[in-house]
Design a protein around this nucleic acid. Sequence first.
DNA 1: ACAAGAAATTAGGTGGCCCTAAATATGAAG
DNA 2: CTTCATATTTAGGGCCACCTAATTTCTTGT
Lengths: 232, 232
Amino acid sequence: MNAVGSRLLTRSTEDYLKAIYSLGGDAGLPVQTAAIADALGVAAPSVSGMLRRLAEAGFLEHIPYRGVRLTDDGRRVALRMVRRHRILESYLTSKLGYDWDSVHDEAERMEHAVSDDLIERMAQVLGSPSYDPHGAPIPTPAGEVEELKHVPLAELGVGQWGELRMVSDKDPERLRFLKSVGLEVGTRFQVIERQPFNGPVTIRVAGRQPQPLGNELARSLGCAARETEGAA
Amino acid sequence: MNAVGSRLLTRSTEDYLKAIYSLGGDAGLPVQTAAIADALGVAAPSVSGMLRRLAEAGFLEHIPYRGVRLTDDGRRVALRMVRRHRILESYLTSKLGYDWDSVHDEAERMEHAVSDDLIERMAQVLGSPSYDPHGAPIPTPAGEVEELKHVPLAELGVGQWGELRMVSDKDPERLRFLKSVGLEVGTRFQVIERQPFNGPVTIRVAGRQPQPLGNELARSLGCAARETEGAA
DNA sequence: ACAAGAAATTAGGTGGCCCTAAATATGAAG
DNA sequence: CTTCATATTTAGGGCCACCTAATTTCTTGT
């Protein structure tokens, strides 16, 4: 199953490959050293060294001074970690009472320790979910991920209806804020107002006061545009 | 909560302290380097070095060439790991369909990765169990463990009744064998025959053929002596 | 076309934990 | 009391993954 010769599947390897994947490696784009360093909270030279080792092990192609691209092998490892992470988040939320703003860290540590067997048992208990609690699609065990066609909330026009579909799990504070203003995955809202030049976007959720959202936040929310107030 | 100064709470530290604890450190006995090396599958000099670091960190007292003894701090860490391990085994068995011969390894890896919070949530979902699936007592979050007064099966007399109470979780093959001959925690049996000088002990479980058990195995099974065939 | 700034890599070093080989301490038997 | 086997420690290395400082390469504006 795990192809290539000498393996080196350590925790660090898994973290690097997952970070590279989520930094654009999913679209096969080259990813820069600095972006990886930033995502993992390590210094750039540490990344340089690690990329060399990962390239030697066959997980990625490295064009010096340009960036890296995952090989099929590297992508396989990354997707396995993404599946693990999302199944764990789903399980912890649904079976152990975790809230969507607190599952991320727990899943992040567990994803390196548990067996494939445990992940599949969890998936089974949950009825093989397709999305995690933040609306992110869960890759299949074979490594297939659904392509999402969400639009950032920031790109909806004034007066338009939308439904929140996906939110990053990485920032607990942001998640708590969203919940406090009534925004969860599946929440419908209407865009009420937009300040020019990247100012806040104001939306209204049924039964709530109009709520301004900073533009950066609005860019981070994956939505589906809706014709009317009702219906999917 | 975690007392003492410079911490160094790595996976290896946790493994060493847990091993020392279960090697007799629970009774405050000095534990030898070679025993630790054997339990952890590392070379003796590696243990020597690690013991020095652990002693410096305040987890144990080291009398050179004599052995080590856990400090209160060391015992606290060890008991925390034991609680984690046993809660995890209980949870995996009861909620995710694991069998008693396969939970050990999974729990062994997870116990280093999960948070105290997760462990307590699992304990709560299970109703705060006192024993794990192998009959071992689960320490409280405060680090108290029940003293067990089991007798090894090997010490029961011919004709005497007993009830299996505890079995080591470390050897899957042994566990599968026990299950195959109808022995689980709680199973009652009668000692039918005993060969002299550490030979096999033959027991009978209700509705089964008499079953010989090697003496080493019989020594490893914790039992309660029973007056008759019935009753607790 | 080139100089400046940004990004990446190399150089050199650290700590944790492992190893083998060699030296040394302990303790049991003669 | 000495000797010898066994247990332990020291000596000397290696690997992984991190760090800072210095250097090299790329890119972009003039």
